Amino acid sequence: VTLFVALYDYEARTEDDLSFHKGEKFQILNSSEGDWWEARSLTTGETGYIPSNYAAPV
């Protein structure tokens, strides 16, 4: 399992994006889409796309 942590807060701009807060942890589901990764929040259980430059490996 690849775990990442949010470096900044992010507010979803589309219904496919995932809103999150700094410090929140994610499981990365798909990182082959370039700058946007499909991720599941370990806090909320929700799935959506996150900007890859807002996350770092745990």
Rank of each mutant, 00 (worst) to 15 (best):
N53G: 14
K25Q: 12
I50V: 06
D9F: 04
Y54T: 05
G23S: 02
N53P: 06
P57E: 07
E11M: 10
E11Q: 12
P57R: 06
S19T: 09
Q27S: 07
N53R: 11
F4E: 01
G45Y: 06
T14Y: 15
T14F: 15
H21A: 12
L42G: 02
R40P: 01
D35F: 13
W36L: 08
K22Q: 09
K22D: 01
G23T: 01
E33T: 12
D35S: 10
Y10H: 06
P51F: 05
S52E: 05
F4S: 04
Y54G: 09
Y54P: 02
R40A: 04
S31C: 15
R13V: 13
A39Q: 00
E38A: 08
F26Q: 00
D16C: 15
T43S: 12
E15G: 13
D35A: 10
S41V: 06
A12Y: 02
E33Q: 14
S19Q: 04
D9G: 06
T2E: 13
F20A: 00
I50Q: 00
L18W: 05
Y49R: 15
G48C: 06
T2P: 13
E24G: 01
S52K: 14
Y49L: 14
S52D: 03
G23K: 01
Y54M: 10
S32E: 10
F26H: 00
R40I: 12
A39D: 00
L18T: 02
T14D: 11
L18C: 02
P51Q: 05
W37K: 03
E15S: 13
D35C: 14
Y49C: 12
F20L: 05
E24N: 05
D16A: 14
G23D: 05
G45N: 08
A56Q: 10
K25G: 05
G23M: 02
E33R: 15
D35N: 09
P57T: 05
F4L: 08
L7K: 05
P51V: 02
Q27Y: 14
D35G: 12
S41I: 09
N30I: 07
G34T: 11
G34F: 09
D9H: 05
F26P: 00
G48Q: 00
S32H: 11
D9Y: 04
N30T: 08
A55K: 02
A39G: 05
G23E: 03
E38Y: 15
A56C: 10
R40Q: 08
S41A: 06
R13M: 12
A56G: 08
Q27F: 14
A56M: 10
T44Y: 02
Y49Q: 08
V58R: 03
D9Q: 04
W37V: 07
S41P: 00
S52Q: 08
E46Q: 14
Y8Q: 09
L42D: 03
F4K: 03
T2C: 15
L42V: 09
H21M: 11
Y49I: 08
F20S: 01
L7F: 04
E46N: 12
W37N: 01
W37A: 03
A55W: 05
T47G: 03
E38V: 15
L42R: 02
R40W: 06
S31T: 14
L3E: 10
S32I: 12
F26R: 00
D9E: 06
D16H: 15
Q27A: 09
A12C: 06
G48I: 03
D16G: 15
Y10A: 01
S19N: 06
K25D: 01
V5Q: 08
Y54Q: 05
T14K: 13
G34E: 11
F4H: 07
E46L: 15
T43G: 06
S32Q: 12
I50D: 00
L42S: 04
S19G: 07
T2F: 11
S32W: 11
V5T: 06
G34N: 12
K22L: 06
L29I: 12
S32R: 11
F4Y: 15
T47M: 09
A55T: 12
S52C: 11
S31H: 12
D17T: 15
Q27K: 07
L42Q: 07
L18R: 01
T14L: 09
Y49P: 01
A56H: 08
K25I: 15
A39R: 00
P57H: 06
E15M: 11
P51G: 03
F20E: 00
E24F: 04
F20T: 02
D16P: 04
R13T: 13
K22W: 04
D17K: 14
V1T: 13
F4A: 12
W36A: 05
W36T: 06
S41H: 07
G23W: 04
E11S: 10
V1C: 15
L7C: 10
D17I: 11
T47D: 04
R13I: 11
F26S: 00
I50C: 02
A6T: 04
E15V: 11
L3G: 04
N30D: 13
T43Q: 09
T43I: 09
L42W: 06
P57C: 07
L18S: 01
Q27G: 02
D9K: 02
V58S: 07
N30M: 08
I28K: 03
L29T: 06
T47F: 08
L3N: 06
L42M: 13
N53F: 11
D9R: 03
E15Q: 12
A6M: 05
L29P: 05
W36N: 05
A6G: 04
A56W: 08
Y10P: 00
S32Y: 10
E46W: 08
R13K: 13
Q27D: 08
L18D: 00
T2K: 12
L3A: 07
W36K: 12
G23I: 00
H21D: 06
V5N: 02
L29R: 05
P51R: 06
L29K: 05
R13E: 10
T44K: 03
S32V: 11
A39N: 00
D17R: 15
W37M: 09
V5D: 03
S32C: 14
P51A: 03
Y49H: 08
Y49K: 14
E38C: 15
T2A: 11
E33A: 13
A55P: 03
G34C: 12
E38Q: 13
H21Q: 12
T44V: 01
Y54F: 11
L29H: 04
S52G: 08
T14E: 09
W36I: 07
L29Y: 07
E33L: 14
T44N: 06
I50S: 00
W37R: 02
